[in-house]
């Protein structure tokens, strides 16, 4: 059974989500999300605002956070540490991909 194609939403800096939406999409509670913001692993667009909004790319991070917490039975401190390591790995992998892309494929 095939269904009509759906227009997807970008999970990047072009889109924004509210704290409540982030909670609904990730499965984490508002309180857990606030704590992860305190730990510095999630970043609202403007932390000084009363109603936080987030770049939609944090949806991916928050969903990973929820999975890791459930599957590894982590507390929020260990979760924040794990997420910061994953972020560094992602960053290093992107640098590595970029460096590899600039290496010639064959020698002429």
């Amino acid at each position: 059974m095939a269904t009509e194609p759906v227009e997807p939403a970008w999970l990047n800096d072009d889109a924004r989500v509210s704290l409540d939406e982030l909670a609904a999409l990730s499965g984490l509670t508002d309180a857990a999300l606030r704590e992860l913001v305190d730990y510095g692993v999630l970043h609202p667009v403007d932390a000084a605002e009363a109603q936080w909004t987030f770049s939609a790319r944090w949806v991916v991070v928050a969903r990973t956070a929820c999975r890791l917490r459930n599957d590894f039975e982590l507390d929020l401190n260990a979760l924040a540490l794990t997420l910061s390591f994953l972020d560094r790995i992602r960053d290093l992998e992107a640098q590595l991909r970029s460096a590899n892309a600039q290496l010639p494929r064959r020698h002429y």
Partner: peptide
């Protein structure tokens, strides 16, 4: 699913 132009490696869509 329609993947609009602009996606690159590692891009997530919902």
């Amino acid at each position: 699913a329609r993947i609009p132009k602009g996606a690159t490696h590692g891009q997530r869509l919902r």
